[in-house]
Simulated scan of single mutants.
Amino acid sequence: MERIAIASTGLGHVSRGIETWALDTAQALYHRGVNVTLFGAFGQTLPLEGEGVPCVSVDCLRRGDEANVVWLKRLPRFIWRLGITGSYGLEQFTFWWRLWPLLRAEKYTILHVQDPALAMWCRRFRKLGLVKTKEILAHGTEESAEFLKPFEYLQHLAPWHLEETVKRLGFSEKPRGWCALPNFVDVDTFCPVAANTGRLQQREDLRAQLGIPSESPVFLCVAAVKVFHKRIDFLIKEFANYAANEASAHLIIAGARDRETDALLELSESLGQGRIHILLNQDRADMPVLLNTADCFVLASLFEMMPIAILEALSAGLPVIANTHPVLEWMVGPGGRCVEIEQAGSLSAALASIDTEWMRAKGALARAHALSLYSTDAVIERYLNYYREVVDV
């Protein structure tokens, strides 16, 4: 197999689905015997140091850092025409500027990324003859169809995304190098609490720490704690409405801090009556136990590319409640319920319509669904076949 580079500019300082995907993909490929290297802005702490996966730290102007802010102010206004937009765009460009000589010197065949500008810059440099590395963009960031159009190698995360992009661009058929391949989940790490005896005590310990009785139904949302897109304000209000008639229920929201987070903390305190718990910037290593602490997973966003949090919930045996949208319906399958949750009162009604018996039955189906469609074994071989196709094009 050729040399594969997996990269994410946020690795080492940001916790999102993109960074999780990069870590999981590099690790899965390595354990399949692939010659893979993980590139990120780690600094001195390498994320997979004990796993044997080769990791390389790439210096860049990280989003949010003072140097990034200063350079954004100094750069001429026309720089956006080159694709350098905002702090994230500058982070990606400066990361790429240090990455491309490494790709060229070490003769990497494929660069597989979810950071869109990294793929864009790799394509531009490849067209100029500066690198031979072929870029694959795993499209998870809601880029426009026009942005995606030039890419020869494009991984859509769900069949609907592929079909919609082809339709919007007016193509008669999908380009040869485009495909639909989902994210995947480690089904051994993310397993039902009954499958891991040590987790049962950890579940009780975390509930006690949060002041949640062991018999109380617990809903969990794993998402960035913000209003835009994730609609955490809507979730808080809907749960408070539901909890007014369900005295024992609790809600845990776990996710990265955002500029809107402080206002959401205040909202949860005013409406939650001590039964809404917001956990910020949790270590990924803590996520399996957090999932095992809950009984049902809920997501308030109306649209998603393919959130890994849903895969982890399904794998842990949690039924999922999400919005009615083709991608979410495809992801959840028999392992939960998708309902229209755009209007006030809709999500609270959905929560009120289920009971513990439904959660147990749907949880078992959720686990089986994850095993059959989204396990590492089910997906990673398809990645390898796609790599072979890209190399042969």
Rank of each mutant, 00 (worst) to 15 (best):
K362M: 12
Y386L: 10
P116L: 11
K73M: 03
L384C: 14
I278D: 11
V36C: 07
N385T: 12
I276F: 09
L267I: 04
F95I: 04
A208L: 09
A244P: 01
D188R: 15
D205I: 11
V14K: 14
P47M: 00
M359D: 02
D65V: 00
A256W: 00
Y30V: 01
D283I: 01
A223S: 12
L347D: 01
N196C: 15
A300P: 06
C55Q: 02
G12R: 05
L23C: 03
F303Y: 14
P76R: 05
L210G: 09
F171Y: 15
L82K: 13
L169D: 09
R123N: 07
G333S: 06
R284C: 00
S57N: 09
G272Q: 06
L311T: 10
A105P: 02
P334R: 02
M331R: 04
G43S: 04
H112G: 11
P76N: 03
Q282W: 00
V289W: 06
P326E: 15
E19G: 08
A254L: 12
K107E: 15
L157M: 14
G198I: 13
P217N: 06
F151M: 09
E329T: 15
F125R: 01
V14H: 08
C191K: 14
L235P: 03
R124A: 09
I4P: 03
G33R: 07
L75M: 10
N241A: 13
L264R: 08
A223E: 02
V53H: 05
G274V: 15
C60M: 08
S248I: 03
Q282D: 00
Q201A: 15
S270M: 14
S15H: 01
K237S: 14
K107V: 07
M306H: 10
F297A: 08
A344N: 13
F147I: 04
T293P: 05
F151V: 11
E173C: 08
R360V: 11
M120Y: 09
L82D: 03
K73D: 03
C122H: 05
L23Y: 11
V379K: 04
R203L: 02
A7I: 09
V225F: 04
K237I: 10
L99P: 10
P116H: 14
T9C: 07
